[in-house]
Nucleic acid binder design. Structure first.
Length: 425
RNA sequence: GGAGAAGUACCCAAGUGGCUGAAGGGGCGCCCCUGCUAAGGGUGUAGGUCGUGCAAACGGCGCGAGGGUUCAAAUCCCUCCUUCUCCGCCA
């Protein structure tokens, strides 16, 4: 959510920046009139309320003095009726304004490159050597099938398309990655581990920005008005919804493993094979609550911690600074980390590290005080995948494949796999 | 799922229609006293948000949430949410 005062005072500048995005911002034009109208109505209503409060005191005094108050009471009946009408008018204006504010995207940071399309994202750095195969390498779904560690067919029988069973060392590898990443972030990077609910309510989805605009992307439990989480970002960020932290609490850092559920509406036909695009996948998420003045250095830190996972796994990757048109709805700045997927002959997103500034904090009402007397300010929130597990499995299978179809297990994972060095038949 | 009870400021808690933005504690700030500590005495402060305003300030809202009754609601009525206790069911 944008800052109303900023929108009020610097409307043209804000509009110009929002126009750099790939988002519909037509709602913006109604803002000015509604906002002005709303304040007029509030003023009128408050004047009358002030009067009513005063006269009520007088009536109270008259009653105690045993005087007749009936003519004043009759007059107040009209005042109260008018107040009621104005309150109703304000309620409607509030509703319209809130709707507008909730559907406007975040303002891009100045360091985000201006651009409309994916190919205008800026490559910041690359890491690692791309593998060279002296044999014909295979996509991970073929390798997995031969090794009998992934079963897409039975999953689509049991549930539907875009679901998968992991089996044997495949399941073990997935679980090893979860534990390896969680241990790294908790023990080396100082995060507090959280295991969140996988369903959240509507307020939480609104707090982090999935709602109201992107309801079709989520799976919904209709009877309860709950949603399956698309990422642990939602429950973990909303843990502190409607709270005021102290300055010493910040930065606050959580890492959470969770399953993630996405409807993938609009992605029909894309990545239909393999682990890249599933309705349910596992992810280790990093979430940080920080002071506003620190949030950009904290974004660099967060991104480096996600990169560390790939470095330890010795998987080649690159980091992109996302352009304004590709930032998504909520981020002011976003780095995507992309891992090399040999079968795609390209890098694929495996982590997305974002600074939301106060955009989520304002929606979710997450604040802090610099000291006891200070006014509460909004925190800045950040999060990033650290990493998406399924895509990491795909990357390991493809990058670590051997000519005989076996997979070398990255050294750092071996303690998590009973010391095993290879996945073979 | 059934039956009860409760939700008031940072915490505990009083308050059943007007003089209650809300008694009283605790906590917190300052002062005094005691060699330090523990304890004691005095005194002060009270959250948040919205509107007008450069500001000082003024005003509105606020007692779990949302409606309603009334000139006037923490207080009366309705709906919902949460927590606790007991029973049932259950991984």
């Amino acid at each position: 959510m944008l800052d109303v005062k900023l929108l009020r005072n610097q409307f043209d500048e804000v509009k110009k920046k929002l126009a750099q995005r790939n988002e519909d911002i037509s709602a913006l034009d109604e803002f000015g009139d509604l906002d002005k109208k709303r304040r007029e109505v509030i003023q009128k209503a408050e004047e009358l309320k002030s009067k009513r409060n005063k006269v009520s005191q007088e009536i109270s005094q008259m009653k105690r003095d045993k005087k007749d108050a009936s003519s004043v009471i009759a007059e107040m009946q009209n005042v109260s009726a008018e107040i009621k009408r104005l309150d109703e008018e304000q309620r409607e204006l509030d509703e319209d304004l809130t709707h507008i504010l909730l559907t406007l995207p975040n303002i891009p940071h100045e360091s985000a490159p201006v651009g409309a399309e994916e190919d205008e994202n800026e490559e910041v750095r690359t890491w690692g050597e791309l593998p060279e195969f002296s044999f014909e390498h295979k996509p991970h779904w073929e390798l997995a099938k031969e090794l009998d560690i992934l079963d897409f067919e039975r999953a689509s029988k049991v549930t539907g398309s875009r679901f998968v069973f992991y089996k044997g060392l495949g399941a073990r590898l997935e679980r090893a990655l979860i534990n390896f990443m969680m241990d790294l972030h908790e023990d080396e990077h100082g995060y507090t581990e959280v295991l969140p609910p996988y369903m959240v309510n509507r307020d939480s989805m609104t707090g982090t920005g999935q709602l109201p605009k992107f309801e079709e992307d989520a799976f919904k439990i209709r009877e309860e008005d709950y949603f399956l989480i698309p990422t642990a970002e939602v429950p973990v960020t909303n843990m502190h919804r409607d709270e005021i932290m102290t300055a010493e609490d910040l930065p606050k850092a959580y890492t959470a493993y969770s399953a993630c559920f996405r409807s993938e509406a609009g992605s029909a036909g894309r990545d239909t094979r393999g682990l890249i695009r599933q309705h349910q996948f596992n992810k280790v998420e990093l979430v940080r609550f920080v002071k506003p003045e620190e949030s950009y250095e904290q974004l660099e830190l967060l991104t480096s911690q996600a990169e560390k996972v790939l470095q330890l796994l010795k998987l080649p990757y690159r980091v992109l600074n996302m352009c304004t048109g590709d930032l998504g709805f909520t981020a002011a700045k976003k780095y995507d980390i992309e891992v090399w997927i040999p079968s795609n002959e390209t890098y694929r997103e495996i982590s997305s590290c974002s600074n939301f500034e106060a955009f989520q904090a304002r929606r979710a009402n997450i604040r802090f005080k610099r000291d006891k007397k200070a006014k509460a300010e909004y925190v800045h929130t950040l999060n990033g995948s650290g990493l998406a597990i399924g895509r990491t499995v795909a990357a390991i299978l493809e990058n670590y494949q051997q000519e005989d179809g076996s997979i070398n297990i990255p050294e750092v994972l071996r303690p998590y796999m009973r010391g095993k060095e290879k996945i073979t038949n």
